[in-house]
Design a protein around this nucleic acid. Structure first.
Lengths: 192, 192
DNA sequence: GTCTATACATCGATAGAC
DNA sequence: GTCTATCGATGTATAGAC
């Protein structure tokens, strides 16, 4: 039995993390304060320490939460059998995830907080996401490490260009499908 | 006549900017303090305001300095007549510039300082760099806006992947040449 | 578990003497 | 042009009452 106390506490923790994402979207991932966060959830700043030992611990919880959400979304996809269509669908979802919340993208993929290193537990879902993607890429013909690196650089580049040059737009995102075709058609032949 | 006073002052300003880059490389582009910067050049923090009206003004000077250095380096290249080889040489230099100093890359290309907008004067050299690159890409067959966007996403992706996953290494950078070949060979055909 | 109060540090910026 | 002194704001974290 879990206990109603622990359950309530967990729900409150999740609520705080949720509010933190909201503030981070406005002030930047490193720009929101614990004072503001506490206000957002209706308590005072010192009370946050009942839930998190430090701001870095909060970042760790956010990192875990973000990666879990990503994993859930990707696992919820009904991938077609055709590898090419499956890769496109998966990457489209990944890029959508990374461009719809810049602060989240900065914490999860851009090491934007100096001194923050995710704990192994928080990192686990990220590993699962990566492994799943690599597996799928293999079925589509991208097998060599160098080919995978090229592919991840391309996808990351689309995200970075979109987020830093035209946040919320789709000028770069809409190039994703043709770039995937380009890579699947001609990248493996060029390996060595 | 310029005047020795103004000359001395300009040299001092350049010295401060130089020291700022040094600190930014250690503490991050947003992480160094004016106190530390002043110490680095042997004066006290308030004395910096003789040279810069605010920290944002300092960032503007750094932005200008960084873009000038980039422009100088690219203009110093002896580009071959062959468009493909010229593009490779130019991009190699650009990527080297962006991966050898992460803090600089963050200020110049990643909008990493909330609230900082470069002044038109500081932005001018950046425009020159971009125009030059686009011109060269045209001679190599990349003409449509969508093709240029794909290309910039790829180059930016190589830089981002290298800087955030393996700072100082070359795991992604070494893929640049084959990626350029891939794009020049097969990208234009896919436009619409 | 939440509060008030406060410690403690850092930082950007200003005032005014020299 | 550089200094000392200080302001004012912000931010993380802790102590202790309730």
């Amino acid at each position: 039995m879990v206990g109603k106390v622990a359950e309530r506490r967990e729900a409150r923790t999740a609520e705080i993390v949720e509010a933190a994402w909201k503030l981070a979207a406005v002030d930047g991932i490193g720009g929101f304060s614990l004072h503001g966060l506490a206000r957002e959830v209706g308590i005072r700043q010192p009370s946050l320490y009942e839930y998190f030992d430090s701001k870095l611990a909060l970042y760790d919880a956010m990192f875990l939460d973000g990666n879990r959400r990503l994993l859930t979304r990707l696992e919820g996809l009904d991938l077609p059998d055709d590898p090419r269509r499956a890769v496109k669908l998966l990457m489209r979802e990944f890029v959508a995830f990374a461009t719809e919340d810049i602060a989240r993208q900065q914490l999860l993929f851009a090491r934007a907080i100096p001194g923050f290193e995710p704990s192994p537990e928080a990192y686990a879902p990220a590993v699962a996401v990566l492994e799943r993607s690599v597996e799928l890429l293999k079925t589509a013909g991208i097998r060599a490490q160098g080919d995978v690196d090229c592919f991840t650089a391309m996808v990351g580049g689309v995200i970075a260009a979109q987020n830093s040059n035209e946040p919320g737009g789709n000028r770069w995102v809409r190039q994703l499908d043709r770039l995937i075709d380009l890579y699947l058609d001609h990248l493996p032949r060029r390996s060595r």
